[in-house]
Design a protein around this nucleic acid. Structure first.
Lengths: 345, 345
DNA sequence: ACCTCGACGTTATACGTAAAACCTCGGATG
DNA sequence: CATCCGAGGTTTTACGTATAACGTCGAGGT
């Protein structure tokens, strides 16, 4: 138990190491920076390293950042970390960053549409670049000083000055879901859509309608809800409480909404999947926690983060970021089945 | 579309602003730092602010950090962000930080026990302090340079050199759960425990046994599993497949494990809660997504982050951090009921 | 008329690092 | 023997900011 009020011993600087090793500060910097082959003898280098280790020297990052004008730090802008998808994106980005001795700092925005007022400065870090996930580009440019390289994830490829895009083939995912249901015989759909108004959800909506539109007698009714279980349940209950022919399948923008839809079904006395098929999107942990397990679309969330970080690193090094969108995969589980006999043609 | 290869226009510095406003750099610094009452006339101050805004000046944080020796940045160490609990802790910490113009950078460790080798340096930020959540203190001290103020969350209050602790009354939560089940008439328990070996889980185990121990004929069998649904299901299946008298309640260390236990029950043809009661812990979104909704213990996760950050700020300012542990609350939902008649005394 | 004293700024300096530019000296070279 | 050269360093500078220390100038007191 040491006195907590001793004024914190000043950390050793490279000059301290130099003094201890009997060399100049520049030499320490060269050795520890790995720039010494041919400039410093092996003997001296070792001596420097030894003393650095002994003193517990660790370079002052603020000083280094100032000197180099780069910080090896990227900002990741996400709508909400409590959404597992974004947590996984972060995890992937952070992993790749760590490999390249980069850091990732987060800028979460409470609402889904992006941070409202405070600029990135509130991230309290000097940044080398920005990675923005699933955001409305206008909300972003208000914050984006335009002076930092920008990589956009899962966002509209057109109309932004992003240096690179990493996209998921959302349209294909939703097409696979819809065709899966069509193939099972469903014709009357509800699309339980996110109330958030971003590109990634717009694509979902369009894709469902397109796929269903190719089958003459298929109908799609859209309802929207915020991304939580209760809201999803309420919206689904409302959509199911129709007079006349009940829809036989609910296509959801998200596993969370799908969980809500399942609860709605149960409340109305409908069995999933016998009376009603439900599909999710994202393949979160939730998808296999509920009963029945959700038929959904697996998104490689970590990979999105990884590719995003790789793209940013490429841009920072002047290399071109390789484009291309990531494939997604339909995962059929227990929440989908052929429609009940009474509803078949 | 501008040429992506133009070498990034250098950001304006305080000196640029000074030149534009016809004052010295020091004056700019005084004005923008808010230290000007009595040192700079209002007219001059306004002129400086105008030119700063026009040039789009933003102070170089690296330089400021170097000069001040403080960075207004805290490190939050969490086992895994994909666990909603920690995402919420982060959210709370970041919110309080933002209010005080502080930043939070994360250090996630893949396994639950804490980062293995890389020191905090890989967070790539100059730090003012560290907040560590639910960690084994020895894993931490290996990383902790001992030169930074440390606040520990949900960790053993004894035996560390932390400057402050923010704890949840975990023991009380588990006691409430157990007594709730005892009150319903349960006597044969399975404690489905986390395989992670940290204080917070040790407390749960001890508390279950203590509470059950006060009732003569109550028995507790413990099984352990990693924190995911499948592992929870498998462990629960094994625990339920006993010969002789089946347990009537499964007390889980976590909602995720509880979801697994529910799935196990269904597989074995047991109904929850009629044949088997299941309880969770944390009250994640998951708890109300599954059917039946989980009886669980609500932990004020955001508040843990908030209080942690407040404690760190207090320590940094030399103020004493007010101690005390946060209360938790039993939330009774649909996954618990009296044991089946055949099992009653 | 001289000193004092605020009000209003300015000059100078330090933070710790990286790296360009510069020394020094012993041996190889012409 | 003068010269070049490379190995092995050192000296110096710059990064942008915050602030301590130091002017300057006009008004007010004596």
């Amino acid at each position: 138990m040491t006195d907590p009020h001793q004024p914190a011993p000043p950390r050793p600087t490279s000059r301290d190491v130099a003094r201890a090793a009997g060399v100049s500060q520049a030499t320490v910097s060269l050795v520890l920076g790995g720039k010494w082959p041919g400039r410093v003898s092996e003997a001296t280098a070792q001596r420097v390293r030894d003393h650095a280790a002994e003193l517990g020297y660790r370079p002052n990052l603020a000083a280094r950042n100032l000197r180099l004008g780069r910080t090896r730090t990227a900002l990741l802008v996400v709508p909400a970390l409590t959404n597992e998808f974004f947590a996984r994106v972060y995890t992937g980005a952070a992993a790749v960053a760590a490999e390249h001795d980069f850091g990732v700092v987060l800028y979460p925005s409470p609402d889904g549409t992006g941070p409202a007022r405070a600029p990135f400065a509130s991230a309290r870090a000097a940044l080398d670049g920005v990675i923005a996930s699933s955001m409305a580009s206008d909300a972003l440019s208000a914050l984006h000083g335009a002076d930092l390289p920008l990589v956009m994830l899962d966002s509209d490829p057109a109309g932004t000055d992003a240096a690179a895009h990493v996209n998921l083939d959302i349209a294909d995912g939703m097409r696979q879901v819809t065709e899966h249901l069509l193939g099972l015989g469903h014709r009357r759909f509800v699309h339980l859509a996110s109330a958030v108004d971003t590109w990634t959800f717009a694509v979902r909506a369009q894709s469902v309608r397109e796929a269903a539109g190719r089958v003459p007698d298929a109908t799609v009714r859209t309802v929207r809800a915020p991304l939580d279980v209760r809201a999803g349940r309420e919206a689904a209950e409302q959509a199911l409480a129709v007079t006349g022919e009940r829809p036989t399948a609910i296509v959801c923008d998200d596993d969370i909404l799908a969980a809500g839809a399942c609860k709605a079904a149960r409340r109305l006395g409908l069995r999933v999947p016998d009376d009603l098929s439900v599909t999710g999107f994202d393949d979160l942990a939730l998808a296999t926690a509920v009963e029945p397990e959700l038929t959904t679309v697996r998104l490689p969330a970590e990979q999105v983060g990884e590719r995003g970080m790789e793209a940013l690193l490429a841009v920072l090094e002047g290399r071109p970021a390789e484009p291309g969108s990531l494939p997604v995969r339909l995962v059929v589980r227990g929440s989908t089945a052929p429609p009940p006999a009474a509803s078949r043609t």
